[in-house]
C-alpha cells in the first residue's frame, strides 16, 4: 500500500537515511531508534514536508509527490513538536485544521466533538489553549491527526507528555484504529509500541536494521538474557564482564538484568528477552 523505495536523504554532505526501503500494509508499525537516528526525517518525508534526495515514496503504486493533495487527503500526521494558536480554543483550532483537510463545516463540527470526546478534552473544548498542560496539547495533536479519518496515520513521539493513564488510553485508541489503516508510530520509548505494534522497524547507521515482528526481533536475544541477584559491592566488577540492561536495588542487594553471549552463569536465571533488551543491546552507548 505505502512503499518507501530506496530512499536516501542527505543534508549537504550528511546522510540521514541511506537507501531505505520499506513496505507498509494495514497495521501498527513501531519505528524505534534513538534520538537523531532519522525517524523524524523519515516521517517528514512520508508527510511530504521533506523530500528524498534519491528514491521515491509511493502510495498504491503512485509517487506521493505526484499524488499531492490526493495523498495528503489520506494521511494524518502528528509531528514531534507542533505549535498551536495560544489564543484559540481546541475547537477553533481543530475547525481550522479541518478546513485545511477539506472537511465541510457540518462534517467537521460533528467529527471535532467526537474526537474531543475520544481524547477526553470535551470539558476543555472551549478553553484557550494557552492554559493547557503538555499532555492536553498532545491530546489536541492526536485529535487533529485523526480529523480526516486517515488511511495512513503517522505519529511522531505521540506519548510524550502523557501520563500513564493517558498512555494506556492512547494505546487502546491506536490498537482499535489499526484494523483498517496503516499506523506508523515513531518513538524511542519501547514500551509504547511493544504491546501494540505488528511490526518493529529499527534504524541504525542510517539504514534499516530490522523490519520484523516483535517476537522475531526478541528471539534474536533468546537464551542470552539473564537475571541475577548480587551484593551491592559486587556490581562494579560484574559491570566489567557483562552488558547490564537494568538493575534494581533492594536493601543491600541488586537484581541485575544482563546479556551474556557465553551462556548461563552460576546463579543466573534465564529470562525471555523483551524489546527493550534488544533496543539496549543494539544501540548500546547511543541511548546513554
Amino acid at each position: 500500500m505505502l512503499t518507501v523505495e530506496n530512499v536516501t536523504k542527505k543534508f549537504g554532505n550528511f546522510t540521514v537515511l541511506d537507501d531505505v526501503s520499506l513496505e507498509f500494509e494495514n497495521g501498527v508499525y513501531g519505528l524505534i531508534a534513538p534520538n537523531g537516528a532519522g525517524k523524524t526525517t523519515l516521517m517528514k518525508m512520508l508527510a511530504t514536508l521533506s523530500f528524498p534526495t534519491s528514491g521515491k515514496i509511493c502510495y498504491c503504486g503512485d509517487d506521493i509527490l505526484k499524488l499531492d493533495e490526493k495523498y495528503r487527503d489520506v494521511i494524518g500526521y502528528l509531528p514531534q513538536q507542533f505549535g498551536y494558536y495560544r489564543d484559540k480554543t481546541p475547537k477553533q483550532y481543530l475547525k481550522y485544521l479541518a478546513a485545511l483537510k477539506g472537511l465541510d463545516k457540518k462534517e467537521s463540527d460533528k467529527r471535532i466533538d467526537e474526537l474531543l470526546e475520544t481524547v477526553s478534552l470535551t470539558d476543555a473544548a472551549n478553553k484557550k489553549m494557552r492554559k493547557f498542560s503538555g499532555g492536553m496539547l498532545q491530546r489536541v495533536g492526536i485529535a487533529q491527526a485523526l480529523l480526516n479519518d486517515p488511511k495512513i496515520l503517522m505519529l511522531d513521539e505521540p506519548t510524550a507528555g502523557l501520563d500513564p493513564k493517558e498512555r494506556v488510553r492512547f494505546r487502546n485508541i491506536i490498537a482499535s484504529l489499526s484494523r483498517d489503516r496503516i499506523v506508523l508510530l515513531s518513538t524511542h520509548i519501547v514500551s509504547d509500541v511493544e504491546s501494540i505494534a505488528n511490526k518493529i522497524i529499527m534504524i541504525k547507521d542510517h539504514k534499516i536494521l530490522y523490519n520484523d515482528t516483535v517476537k522475531n526481533i526478541c528471539d534474536l536475544l533468546d537464551g542470552k538474557v539473564f537475571e541475577m541477584t548480587l551484593n551491592e559491592s559486587d556490581i562494579t566488577e560484574f559491570e566489567k564482564n557483562y552488558h547490564i540492561l537494568s538493575q534494581k536495588i533492594e536493601h543491600n542487594t541488586v537484581t541485575v538484568r544482563f546479556i551474556s553471549d557465553n551462556g548461563e552463569d552460576e546463579g543466573a536465571q534465564k529470562v525471555y528477552p523483551g524489546l527493550e533488551d534488544v533496543f539496549l543491546r543494539i544501540y548500546g552507548d547511543d541511548v546513554i
Binding site: 514536508l49 495528503r72 513538536q81 507542533f82 494558536y85 485545511l100 480526516n148
Partner: peptide
C-alpha cells in the same frame, strides 16, 4: 510552529 500540521494537511 504550526507549519508541520498546516502544510501536511490536504
Amino acid at each position: 510552529g504550526t507549519h508541520f500540521l498546516v502544510y501536511s494537511a490536504k
